[in-house]
Amino acid sequence: MTPAGQKTFTLATDLDGTFLGGTEDDRRTLYDWIEARRDSVGLVFVSGRDPMFIESLCSDGFVPWPDYVIGDVGTTVAEVRERKIHVIEPLEEQIAELWGGRGDAVRATLDGAAGLTLQPTPFRYRVSYDYDPHAYDGVAEGRVREMGLDVLISDNRFFDVLPPGVSKGPTLLRFLDHFGIAHGRTLVAGDTLNDLSMFQTGLQGAVVGGSEQPLLDATRDIQTARHCAAIGAAGIIEAIAAFDLHPEVHEVAA
């Protein structure tokens, strides 16, 4: 297998609405293109999803296995070996330190908070809620910030409490530098506001067609962020071709 830092191109992509978005034919085109070029194309899932979900997703044989996972909105960093996801401890040490074991304190502080329903998944370095914008009164954000933690509201339905300064973008940069992956040969892709920090890294990016309006507004003046016409997986192909990140992508680009 080609080492991560020596691959021609690396795709660091969100899942829902992005890598998993678009028609089945568009997804199959992208997935087959990647699978045929695993020696030259690196695949990193940068998602709010947890490793257990990703293992289940890829086990069906349709969605390709990634080489690495930056999950849980940037609080999990892992590699895939033998179709199992294994945490990369050196890249999680700082995240764990910044979190400081405050999960129980967050849950207690936000117990009964208006507009928030605790998600049952036992994340290690984040606490996540389903968010009702009509019932939410804004109090919870202040409580979280008083604890020295960050809040990320995305897709108008998720409320994530994260370690300070930790999100998809900063974790991805640390990951790329750790493995010697060239920034100029990397494409980030996303569709909601929890992907914004990836586009703020200076990496070339695909804001795929069908993205939520707040992300479109927030990335409008970021020169490296392409607002793609094509939706989901087709938007990723569109951006790879537009940025000329792989010599063989034009074979499948519209």
Rank of each mutant, 00 (worst) to 15 (best):
Glu89Asn: 12
Asn156Leu: 07
Thr192Gly: 01
Phe175Asn: 03
Thr13Val: 01
Ala253Asn: 13
Ser211Pro: 06
Asp155Gly: 06
Val73Ala: 05
Ile222Trp: 02
Gly48Ile: 11
Gln119Phe: 03
His227Thr: 10
Ser211Asn: 05
Gly232Glu: 14
Asp50Ser: 09
Arg81Pro: 00
Leu20Lys: 04
Asp132Lys: 09
Asp160Lys: 06
Pro247Leu: 08
Gln223Arg: 14
Thr13Leu: 05
Val127Arg: 07
Gly205Trp: 12
Pro90Ala: 04
Lys168Asp: 10
Asp104Ala: 15
Met52Thr: 05
Asp111Gly: 13
Phe158Ile: 12
Phe175Asp: 01
Lys7His: 06
Val106Phe: 07
Glu212Ala: 12
Asp191Ile: 08
Ile237Val: 15
Gly148Ser: 07
Gly232Ala: 14
Asp160Pro: 09
Val144Leu: 12
Ile54Gln: 02
Ala189Met: 12
Leu172Gly: 00
Pro247Asn: 09
Phe9Val: 13
Glu141Cys: 10
Gly42Asn: 13
Asp150Cys: 07
Val139Glu: 14
Val161Tyr: 00
Ile181Arg: 09
Thr75Asn: 00
Arg107Cys: 08
Thr121Tyr: 14
Val151Phe: 04
Phe158His: 15
Arg126His: 02
Val139Ser: 15
Thr75Pro: 00
Val63Pro: 04
Phe123Asp: 00
Thr201Gln: 02
Thr23Leu: 04
Glu92Asp: 04
Val41Pro: 08
Gly169Tyr: 02
Val207Tyr: 05
Ile236Ala: 05
Leu215Val: 07
Ser59Leu: 05
Tyr136Asn: 10
Pro120Arg: 14
Ala135Gly: 06
Leu116Met: 06
Ala241Pro: 04
Glu141Trp: 03
Arg102Ile: 01
Pro133Cys: 04
Ser128Lys: 05
Glu93Ser: 08
Ala234Glu: 03
His246Gln: 03
Pro214Gln: 09
Thr75His: 02
Gly115Ile: 04
Ala140Trp: 06
Val151Met: 07
Ala108Tyr: 03
Ala229His: 11
His134Thr: 14
Glu55Gln: 10
Leu116Tyr: 04
Gly138Asn: 04
Gly190Asn: 11
Ala241Met: 07
Ile237Gly: 03
Arg226Trp: 15
Trp33Phe: 15
Val69Glu: 08
Tyr129Asp: 04
Gly61Tyr: 10
Gly202Tyr: 03
Ile222Leu: 15
His86Val: 11
Thr219Lys: 11
Leu57Asp: 11
Gly115Ser: 06
Ala113Arg: 10
Ala140Thr: 12
Ala254Gln: 14
Arg83Ile: 04
Gly165Val: 12
Gln6Gly: 11
Arg124Phe: 05
Phe19Met: 13
Glu212Gly: 01
Leu162Phe: 08
Phe175Leu: 01
Gly202Trp: 00
Trp65Glu: 06
Thr224Glu: 10
Asp14Asn: 14
Asp177Lys: 12
Val188Asn: 05
Gly112Met: 08
Arg143Asn: 11
Gln94Ser: 07
Leu196Val: 10
Glu35Tyr: 00
Gly209Arg: 07
Gly17Thr: 11
Trp99Asn: 02
